[in-house]
């Protein structure tokens, strides 16, 4: 949403070694919403025969995007951690293309945040993967 918020989020990413190593970038941050991207990199290949990146790299991006959506929720206080995250891989990501993700925190209780997300490549019509997860709210 606001340029400031996205910029702040980007600085937050710079402080996370794993996200930085994977080249993750924020493209948008709103209330209970986050969008990110991760450019293709041959180091992320999971299937050497096709050059398709490993599901684990997509998982990492989706997890980070979901966490960011929780953190940006207006009712959010304190920290969050993933309780569980399920990913459905609908099709292989096209080699060479940037992965884009968007996540929405659609419900937040005092202790649990519920999140949905999807991952796309250059094809907007058919997502590469979708995710649903729950996250802790506040506390330790």
């Amino acid at each position: 949403m606001s340029v400031d918020q996205t910029k702040m989020a980007q600085q937050f990413i710079a402080a996370i070694p794993h996200s930085k190593e994977l080249g993750m970038q924020y493209t948008e941050v709103g209330e209970g919403f986050a969008a990110m991207q991760m450019p293709y990199d041959t180091r992320f290949i999971g299937d050497p025969q096709t050059g398709v990146i490993h599901g684990g790299a997509v998982f990492a991006l989706l997890d980070t995007t979901c966490g960011a959506a929780v953190m940006s929720h207006p009712k959010m206080k304190g920290h969050t951690a993933t309780i569980d995250l399920r990913i459905d891989y609908m099709r292989p990501a096209t080699p060479g293309q940037t992965i884009r993700t968007r996540a929405t925190c659609y419900r937040m209780t005092r202790s649990v945040a519920f999140v949905r997300a999807e991952a796309l490549d250059d094809n907007d019509e058919n997502p590469v993967a979708s995710a649903t997860g729950t996250f802790t709210v506040g506390g330790n």
């Binding site: 996370i16 070694p17 794993h18 684990g56 990492a60 951690a81």
Partner: peptide, 19 residues
């Protein structure tokens, strides 16, 4: 170092664990 997801704790990134 590059596996870290939370530099404050520090803790391994959930994405690295999942992968």
């Amino acid at each position: 170092e590059m596996l870290i997801g939370n530099p404050m704790l520090p803790a391994i990134h959930g994405g690295a664990t999942a992968a």
